Simulated assay, not measured.
Amino acid sequence: MRFYEDISVCDTHHSDGYQLSKEEIIEFGKKYDPQPFHTDEEAAKDSVFGGLVASGWQTAAVSMRLYVESSEDMATQAGLGVDDLRWHRPLRPGDELRLETEIINKRISESDTSCGVVTTRHEGLNQDDELIISYAATAMVRRRVDEQ
């Protein structure tokens, strides 16, 4: 388990990739973002995207999965928020997303000194190293009991 004290500003890590299928895009779109360019291959051809694309919210959800899977059992207590969320280009069926993460800030919580507040910068890239999504996330991370 990695605690607040084990984390340093400028630490980086990279996730494995996750390949998104056409079926996953359509299923997510129908359930959570029912716009034609997420749910209907034929209708998507006439959209600004020229074909089926994943919802930005699905891209964010996959990014979260990749972060959790690659975060080395960080002692995260709760997410506090996301800032500067940007979708730079869409994910298409068969694209593979991977996440690059950097710790950009940390401080001890003023309201609960058993935790620290850690901010991470995330960039999601596709198989061609094109930037797909970027954002900063802030979370509370547990401190070691004996160091408080």
Rank of each mutant, 00 (worst) to 15 (best):
G81I: 10
D40W: 07
R89K: 15
R86A: 06
H88Q: 10
E42Q: 15
E100R: 07
D128Y: 01
H13W: 15
R92T: 04
S70D: 14
Q35N: 12
D83E: 13
N105Y: 09
D33R: 05
S134H: 11
Q58L: 15
T101Y: 04
I26K: 07
W87K: 02
A136G: 04
T76M: 11
D112V: 04
H88W: 10
D11F: 06
Y32G: 12
S71Q: 06
L20G: 01
A78K: 10
T101W: 02
D46N: 09
T113V: 07
H122D: 10
D83A: 09
Q148V: 00
H14T: 03
A137I: 12
E96F: 01
L125K: 12
D128T: 02
T39E: 06
G29N: 05
Q19E: 14
N105I: 03
I133C: 09
S114N: 09
W57C: 02
M74T: 14
S8K: 07
F49A: 11
M74H: 00
R65I: 09
F37N: 15
I7C: 03
G94Q: 01
G51T: 01
V118A: 09
D84I: 11
A137E: 11
I133P: 04
Y67I: 14
D112L: 07
W57D: 10
E110L: 08
D46A: 09
I7F: 00
F49K: 10
E24P: 09
D129T: 08
M74A: 12
D83F: 02
V82Q: 12
R107M: 06
Y4H: 08
E69N: 11
